[in-house]
Design a protein around this nucleic acid. Structure first.
Length: 153
DNA sequence: GCCAACGTTGGC
DNA sequence: GCCAACGTTGGC
């Protein structure tokens, strides 16, 4: 069992949007490192911190889980999609995605708050210049965040 | 809107 | 394989 942090722009897809559906396909990832995490690392049932980015209050907004293993992202083949990739073919797809199922909304653990905890100082998402939309979360970090969500409401 | 940091592309 | 130029991310 592994843990992940996945960024989404709430203007596009928020935790509320995902909660309203059984699961959603995580389309649109166009970064090799993030793709490899989905393709090589993610397994059904892995824990996900749902992070809102590029918004007024960036931070962790909910808990989710991985609901499928990786499969080709269909938007890479769609000419009209902003995620279209002319170099991808059906035979050799370049981009993959997984399904994500929301579990619940949490209080907003803002980026500013996350930065105050020494226990989380090594979190990838908190590192300077970190832009990856999908990052692994260490078990210690996951546990600390679960504890935070129980203790401080 | 600014801009630092990082990733990708392509000429050589 | 190097690296400059360019594009993107995302906090502020």
């Amino acid at each position: 069992m592994a843990y992940w942090l996945m960024k989404s722009e709430p203007d596009e897809i928020s935790i509320d949007d995902v909660l309203a559906l059984p699961s959603i396909p995580w389309f649109g990832v166009r970064n090799y490192q993030a793709r490899n995490f989905m393709r090589d690392g993610m397994r059904i049932g892995d824990g996900v911190l749902f992070y809102h980015s590029s918004c007024a209050e960036p931070g962790i907004a909910g808990l989710a889980e991985v609901a499928s293993t990786a499969y080709p992202d269909h938007t890479q083949f769609e000419k009209d999609s902003k995620y279209f990739d002319p170099k991808a073919t059906q035979e050799t797809p370049r981009w993959m995605m997984v399904d994500v199922k929301a579990k619940r909304k949490t209080r907003l653990l803002s980026l500013a708050e996350l930065r105050t905890y020494p226990e989380l100082a090594d979190m990838t998402v908190l590192q300077k210049g970190s832009r990856l939309s999908i990052t692994p979360v260490k078990p210690d970090e996951w546990r600390f965040i679960q504890k935070l969500l129980k203790e401080k409401v």
